[in-house]
Amino acid sequence: MQLNVNGQNHQIDADPEMPLLWALRDLLNIKGPKFGCGVAACGACTVLLDGMPVRSCSLPVADAAGEITTIEGIALDGTLHRVQRAWIEHNVPQCGYCQSGQILAAVALLEETPQPTDQDIDFAMTNLCRCGTYPRIKAAIKTAAGMES
């Protein structure tokens, strides 16, 4: 099987039913996508598949045809993505465990809706954060969008 991750092709030998998350983490040692629930309920495992956010814990690796982007793939030439920079500016992460997923969900939201309203954010950002960083995530998204927060 072949996987295209962050612009690179990888040959893997896996059970086609294996969720993309575990292929990335255990077979390719790409640890940015995290395991939280395994049932598409939390978003910690979020990756972009052709730009769309997907929950990789619930996507069989055989169905992951397309360009996969993980958190490791959004910085360009060593420059952090504007969403990552906004995250730093607002001191968003606490334990940080949900944040790879949150950041990718935010990247996808801003691609789709460059100037999101509070409601847009509430609807798009369904990733869970047990540390309760939501208020700062919201503020950071607005900063990344170049809006007042």
Binding site: G32, K34, T70, I71, E72, I88, G96, S100, I103
Partner: peptide, 11 residues
Amino acid sequence: IAEKVTGAPIY
């Protein structure tokens, strides 16, 4: 913070 916004393998 840098590790936590880049998905670094810290956990």
